[in-house]
Amino acid sequence: MRPLIIDSVLGAIGKRTISVFKTIHNVSTLLNNIAYWTVVSPLRGKRIRFKATVSEIVKAGYNAIPIVTVIAFFVGIILALQSAYQLRKFGAIIYVANLLGVSITRELGPIITAIIVAGRSGSAFAAEIGSMKASEEVDALVTMGINPIRFLVVPKLLALMLMQPALTAIFDLVGIGGGFFLSISLLEITPHRYYTQTINAILVKDLMTGLVKAWAFGVVITCVGAYHGFQVEAGAEEVGLRTTASVVSSIFLVIFFDFFFTTLFYYFL
């Protein structure tokens, strides 16, 4: 007997629902485990892998400094030029310093750094964990009684929790430096004026909200990378797919969280 159309439609809806619930279940289990092995288990006296954390800090943080610096410098220059284009109409060119200082520390610094790190390290996390999953290395860890989350994810998470704000701070500094460089050379603002204008424009609050966001983005990028890595079952193709997916979804989630935090800070700070 042929199955009725209604059967197959309901079947498809059912299957889709099950897979959505499965994803939610997987994600929440992973987050729960990450929280446990990062916060609770060290409190219970289980050592954190200090050496591995340092090596992740070097790979994900220290090695990213050149690219962050270069991009920040150019973004600073571009932003200064674009704002000068408008502000000169009102003879308010000195406000380039305000615009640049505030928009970089509050918004562009955290978000562009997060996109760079998602592309550099988030993808690397997914690829590393994914290929370890595919070659049964993760299973081997489990059979040795070593928790893969503690072994693989926690060092990366700690590294990004530290380095994401650090890289963002570097971005802020160099980005403003780029604007400064352009302003004193092409826009004929004196260094001293630009400096005092910037100092007066940026509040500690602006800096802090930017760095808090950066910290959260670090957490998001690590968790997304880990999630996609652990989803790999077998095969190199899947590793590639998951790596791409991790970059796309961490950029999406970073922007979503940015929206969330910005709204929060706008109303409550």
Partner: peptide, 20 residues
């Protein structure tokens, strides 16, 4: 409990599964 049990066993995987 499972981790305790696992400390008493050793496994060789079909593909060796050494950490690369």
């Amino acid at each position: 409990d499972l981790d305790e049990f696992r400390k008493k066993m050793g496994v060789l995987f079909q593909g060796a599964a050494l950490l690369n």
